[in-house]
Amino acid sequence: MTAAAVTLSGSLQLLQHSFLGTAVASVPWVFPITETIHVLSLAVVFGSIVMLDLRLVGISSRTGAVSAISHEVLPFTWVAFAVATLSGALLFLSNASGYAANRQFQLKFLFIALAGVNMLAFHLGAYRSVSQWDYRMPPPNAARIAGVLSIVLWLTIIVFGRWTGYTMSGE
């Protein structure tokens, strides 16, 4: 192992044996409750982002302005994303080195990063001129592509998330 790998594996061990790590792993019901909170929050992240994505594609809420729907939906997405991150971090602590080495878990984070890049590209690109196409039907191609990509990426994230749980707990 390289020096960096040794440090990483040492830090993961430290996290896992920290107070929080052992609490989540060994106190009865803490893991299942945290996991359910993770499911509830990811449901709001995905469900709310899909409402906006379907509007961007042009198949839902067709009469509403894109910017209005975006303002209504995104606060839910961000609050839920914060809860999903916190609950996810707690789950990670319970077995930090196991998750870090899990292929499905690594792929999940790759796809979360890709979803972030897609969102950023849309906001710095097509969304800047939203006032010009707020009601246009069908919406511009850049918006439709961003919407489809977002749905596909988030579905992939859900699949890898569920798959991680399956491989880690040996359900």
Binding site: A43, V44, F46, V50, M51, I158, V159
Partner: peptide, 16 residues
Amino acid sequence: SVHIAALSVLFASALF
């Protein structure tokens, strides 16, 4: 996985 994706749409809509 499909169950989770579908429950997301239902739950987020109900919350909304």
